[in-house]
């Protein structure tokens, strides 16, 4: 496989995953904005949404004030925002078009149709009652693409590079969401226990579609340490850091077997995976949740770089 192909597939899957994450983040902001106003609460919520999406500085260059419709528009449609749903889909589609030969016809068509349909969405949708429907549509279509990929793609390097893209991006998004909200998960906040906190916690879970599954797994009401454990260490949770690194190391192992080699990225991924596998939430809190998450994001970036180097993405 060409190095350029591997790079395009890796990033294609990252972009589709990121488009979906953006839709989830907007959904959470939108739900919170529906609640009765509590001082500057809404503004803070949109600010942290932008931070979690990595869009805060870009947004403030475009808009002087935090307004729901501007934030939504910036995250959905802004062409100058490289992480907007529009930009993600445009780049995913461009990569897919460049790599038609590495994709099945079904994969290509599901992504191409998603792009064709999204281009027809009028930006006003971001302001009205159609917003939840549009966000649901983005999630559904990216799930359709992912499902088509899983059902049709050859289990060889084309699959593994897509997997690596999906799960490094997913791990990054989960870590970012936690990192933005880490303070509401700190133990001293547990005693506050008011309605707002409860709502914040459920927002974190909602953004990763986990507010119901949490109850099934833990059989108890939301508790910050449990939520952190769920999203960082729990293997059952498909967006947890642990789950993502299980998938990453599995894809790298398969790739190593196929190519008959093992590279720097294998060691990095295995190192992070074993940290998570043996990790416990108590010590993580003691050493600092924020520090833990920053370190994780750094490692995740380093892994992405190592994969590009080891598999000659740009040479």
């Amino acid at each position: 496989m060409l190095g350029r192909t591997a790079s395009d597939l890796f990033w294609l899957s990252r972009y589709v995953e990121r488009a979906e994450s953006m839709a989830r983040l907007i959904e959470v902001g939108y739900r919170i904005a529906l609640r009765p106003r509590e001082g500057d609460g809404h503004h803070e919520e949109w600010r942290s949404t932008l931070t979690a999406a990595g869009c805060e500085s870009g947004y403030s260059q475009k808009h002087a004030s935090l307004e729901a419709r501007h934030v939504v528009n910036y995250m959905l449609f802004e062409p100058d925002n490289p992480s907007s749903v529009c930009s993600c889909l445009a780049r995913a589609r461009q990569n897919a078009r460049a790599q038609r030969t590495a994709m099945t016809a079904e994969m290509w068509q599901s992504l191409n149709q998603m792009w064709i349909d999204f281009k027809d969405v009028r930006p006003e949708v971001g302001e009205g009652n159609e917003l939840p429907e549009l966000l649901g549509w983005v999630k559904q279509r990216s799930a359709l693409f992912r499902g088509t990929l899983l059902n049709t793609i050859l289990r060889n390097d084309t699959f593994y590079f897509n997997q690596l893209g999906t799960f490094t991006e997913r791990a990054e998004n989960t870590a970012r969401i936690l990192n933005v909200k880490y303070y509401v998960l700190l133990p001293q906040n547990e005693i506050v226990g008011g309605g707002t906190d409860n709502h914040q916690w459920s927002a974190i879970l909602r953004s990763v579609s986990a507010h119901r599954s949490y109850r099934w797994v833990y059989k108890e009401s939301y508790r910050p340490a449990r939520i952190a454990e769920y999203l960082i260490l729990n293997r059952q949770m498909p967006r947890s850091l642990m789950s993502c690194y299980d998938e990453i190391t599995s894809a790298l192992d398969d790739l190593g077997r196929l190519y008959g080699n093992s590279a720097h990225c294998h060691a990095l991924a295995e190192d992070t995976r074993s940290c998570l596998a043996s990790g416990q939430i108590g010590p993580i809190f003691q050493c600092g949740l924020h520090e833990f998450l920053l370190d994780f994001i750094r490692r995740n970036h380093a892994l992405s770089d190592a994969i590009s180097r080891d598999y000659h993405f740009f040479e």
């Binding site: 190095g3 030969t101 190519y259 080699n261």
Partner: peptide, 28 residues
């Protein structure tokens, strides 16, 4: 390229070394 199962390459994916033509793959 897809129908024939061959790589679709651009100029940037190819290089001449030691009198032969090569493509730059994930395995070198």
């Amino acid at each position: 390229a897809d129908e024939m199962g061959i790589e679709l390459v651009e100029g940037q994916d190819l290089v001449v070394e030691d009198g032969a033509l090569y493509m730059k793959t994930t395995r070198g």
